[in-house]
Design a protein around this nucleic acid. Structure first.
Length: 385
DNA sequence: GTAGGACTAG
């Protein structure tokens, strides 16, 4: 329920009353801390558990920490944790290995991912369908089609066959390349193989048509999906709304926006951001501000992306004071954590001929970053004691 | 019917 603090309160009661706990009791809050983006806290908690021998970690607990680290972009640390496991009593299993392989793929480090999977196979940790799916997705997104073919035959030689994820990965890969017809062909093929397309399949194909600006075809998939009794989710709506926005058909977008709640779904931060971007794009600044306020009144919490949209929008129309007051407020609230913000503000100030101000912000951020990097680098080694 | 890994949107 995203109430990690309440979880810890319950944990305190456990400990006070002497209710028995196990490794599951502690793995759950680790995952919770990660979902709150508190990477360092999660890792410190994990280390404390091990150091003070409060509980013996198992493969799942290691996996939870590794997954948290990898999803926040700390591939190096994820890999070193795998290496640490290999030296200790709890040997890594295929899940632990897959987390690192996927992380390497997401970093576009495909050679390293493939060589790690080969290494793990030699050590007796055999690749499964998830390993292959991660690799195929990475190779596809990186345009290495030939290697995908090799992996496919390798997979089938090992009696591992494509599942729904595999098909969706391939369909998405084709769509992003603009080959939506081929993607639809693969969808028919998966039907023949007895793998039913799911909502993800349809969403990906709709996005493919949207990317080519073919809104009629995207809309046809949307209707087809409903015929098949698959309810569109918020992502389906966001894909279509984005399609309309990119074609500057704001009417179509707002019409769909109103339809969301009628169909029992709820707009999310992505929905608002997509439309907000478009309002700025066509210069409807007043509507954009009103729309953002409307979002706040629904209780949605703005994120990095939508703040970036606001900043960009203000700068684009020369509203420097407005942009800077938002920026100062954000800096106060979040601390200096997101380089993207600084890029937006520095770029905006430069475009508005405020070079001195831009330079001052650059300097401040530069020195702050340098000292942060020092902190991180000296802590890079994994020691659990 | 207690915890971990792969695929979609801004």
């Amino acid at each position: 329920m995203h109430h990690v603090d309440c979880g810890f309160s319950v944990l305190a009661i456990y400990l006070k009353k002497g209710i028995p706990f196990d490794v599951v009791t502690f793995t759950t809050p680790i995952r919770g801390i990660f979902t709150e983006n508190r990477v360092k806290d999660a890792v410190d908690f994990f280390k404390k558990l091990v150091r003070e021998k409060i509980c013996e970690p198992n493969e799942v607990m290691y996996g939870t920490v590794m997954n948290g680290l990898s999803k926040k972009g700390h591939t190096e640390k994820t890999l070193s944790l795998l290496r640490l496991m290999e030296q200790g009593n709890i040997k890594p299993n295929i899940c632990n290995s897959n987390i690192v392989i996927d992380s390497l793929c997401k970093d576009r480090n495909l050679d390293a991912a493939i060589s790690l999977s080969n290494e793990m196979n030699r050590k007796g940790i055999r690749s499964n369908i998830i390993t292959y799916n991660s690799l195929i997705d990475g190779l596809f997104k990186f345009g290495q089609w030939e290697k995908v073919r090799i992996l496919f035959s390798e997979m089938v030689n090992h009696n591992i066959y494509p599942d729904m994820h595999t098909f969706n990965i391939v369909i998405d890969g084709l769509c992003k390349e603009g080959k939506v017809e081929d993607a639809e062909e693969v969808m028919r093929h998966m039907n023949e193989k007895g793998v039913e397309p799911n909502i993800l399949t349809y969403n990906v194909i709709m996005d493919g048509y949207c990317l080519r600006g073919q809104m009629d075809r995207a809309r046809r998939i949307f209707d087809f999906m409903i015929d098949k009794c698959i309810d569109p989710d918020i992502i389906s709506y966001n894909i279509l709304i984005n399609g309309y926005c990119k074609k500057k058909k704001l009417d179509g977008a707002t019409q769909l926006f109103r339809e969301i709640s009628r169909r029992g779904s709820k707009p999310n931060i992505v929905t608002y951001n997509t439309i907000l971007q478009s309002l700025f794009e066509v210069g409807r600044i007043g509507s954009a501000k009103k729309f953002f306020d409307e979002m706040l009144s629904t209780g949605l919490v703005p994120d990095l992306c939508i703040h970036g949209t606001l900043l960009n929008g203000y700068f684009k129309y020369g509203l420097v004071d407005e942009a800077m007051s938002l920026f100062n407020e954000l800096e106060r609230k979040r601390g200096k954590s997101d380089i993207e913000f600084y890029n937006v503000v520095i770029n905006g100030l430069c475009k508005n001929r405020k070079l001195d101000k831009a330079h001052a912000i650059f300097e401040a951020f530069f020195y702050w970053t340098a000292s942060e990097c020092e902190n991180i680098q000296y802590n890079d080694k994994w020691t659990l004691s």
